[in-house]
Design a protein around this nucleic acid. Structure first.
Lengths: 224, 224
DNA sequence: GATAGCTTAAAACATTTGTTTGAATTGTCA
DNA sequence: TGACAATTCAAACAAATGTTTTAAGCTATC
């Protein structure tokens, strides 16, 4: 693939080569995927030599792993921390809407700053359907711990909620949030007026209200 | 009297080369992605010559497009038809659960048969985060029409539902369904007992009940 | 049996891929 | 300064990429 030269945005001379490579690779991998990005494009965009990739990281794959190592745990911790914050602030019995809003904000926050963590968000989406990470580090380091945290928080916020259903509710919430992330690119290019405008904050508010209502129905209403 | 037509016996020996290539490419693209699948692997798995790809389809990309052309419209129509069926059977005023259950089944059905359309489902997931289709054919041919259909069906099923909110509700439903699709591979390999078992039918039932409850709260309850 | 038209086959095409090499350059400390 | 390590560089590596070419095989019609 010729791959248009795109932007000549050499990531600048900001910082040492190793960091420039990490930042540049994060952007290119998120835009064109792992196989869709060549080491030469990468080095060119980062303004360094081709050999630097192997010099600093050993291989293209190791560089890819390093990107995740840099962001995965902090991002997971941020999500769990946002849950914990609501829990402590409410003395262990948070209002359902507060819990959901807080988690949704932590989840979607990286999308707000256009440049920094938004790329990694996209990259995570790719990794979910096209894994290049060894073993199941993504599930173990990110998905399962986050799921656990939101699950027990939900049980605290809604004592009437059945435990076996709490995990399903967590799926629903995360599914909605992820979908909000995924559909954004579709709106950005296809401005056909055929489709409503994309307002992230409106979507988030909806997800919170929608989920809260559904959970209440589970907790209060029928148990079967 | 005709000559015996013995041929190679690699894999999909059934049918002419063109169809074998389409089936094989569907599987390989869904498993390893577009860039992750070489024309040689493809031809080898289909039991034909390398040149056949370009002979029948012109290029690797055209073959990719043909796969979608084969499935996209029928799958979309199946989804919309499942909605229409509920609408007519209920004389235009369906029970909310029936509408949701019917749509969810049509949405998830391809996952049931392990081999046939399940691969294409996976492929659609890839296409959403890593587009190789020209322009926005996926949005125009699949996403938007399906969204429109479920949206107006929701309004019919719930007259109290605000129109501007109907599209958000549709996002929530599709987001949950897609997530149910995406998380399955995570469960299949990581059987750590750390995570609950994956039961698709249980998840579907939950999504239906969860969404119905939330929609009712929207339609009946608060308007603000 | 000869002819024409698809279809298949093997090989070569020209790039591009990730990686390695070894020399040049830079920086650091004695 | 001189010596030594760390870094950068251009070049070359072997392998793999999508595509094209050229010749052979096949099947039908005359």
């Amino acid at each position: 693939m010729p791959v248009s030269q795109e932007k000549n945005t050499v990531e600048g001379d900001a910082g040492p080569v190793r960091e420039r490579l990490l930042d540049t690779a994060e952007r290119l991998f998120s835009e064109h995927g792992f196989e869709g990005t060549s080491v030469r494009e990468l080095a060119s965009a980062a303004g360094c030599n081709i050999a630097s990739v192997n010099y600093y990281f050993g291989s293209k794959e190791k560089l890819y792993e390093e990107i995740f190592r840099r962001h995965l745990i902090p991002m997971r911790n941020a999500r769990i921390a946002s849950i914990d914050r609501v829990m402590t602030e409410s003395s262990g019995r948070p209002k359902l809407e507060d819990l959901l809003q807080s988690f949704a904000n932590a989840f979607i926050e990286p999308l707000a700053d256009e440049t920094k963590a938004a790329r990694f968000m996209k990259l995570m989406g790719r990794e979910m359907v096209d894994s290049h990470l060894p073993s199941d580090v993504f599930a173990k380091e990110m998905a399962i711990p986050t799921l656990k945290a939101i699950q027990i928080a939900l049980l605290k916020a809604c004592p009437g909620l059945d435990e076996s259903r709490a995990v399903l509710v967590a799926y629903s919430i995360i599914g909605q949030l992820l979908h909000a992330v995924h559909i954004r690119p579709m709106f950005e290019q296809a401005c056909d007026a055929e489709v409503p405008k994309y307002e992230l904050s409106r979507i988030i508010d909806h997800i919170v209200a929608f989920s809260a209502a559904a959970i209440r129905a589970y907790a209060e209403g029928r148990n079967e």
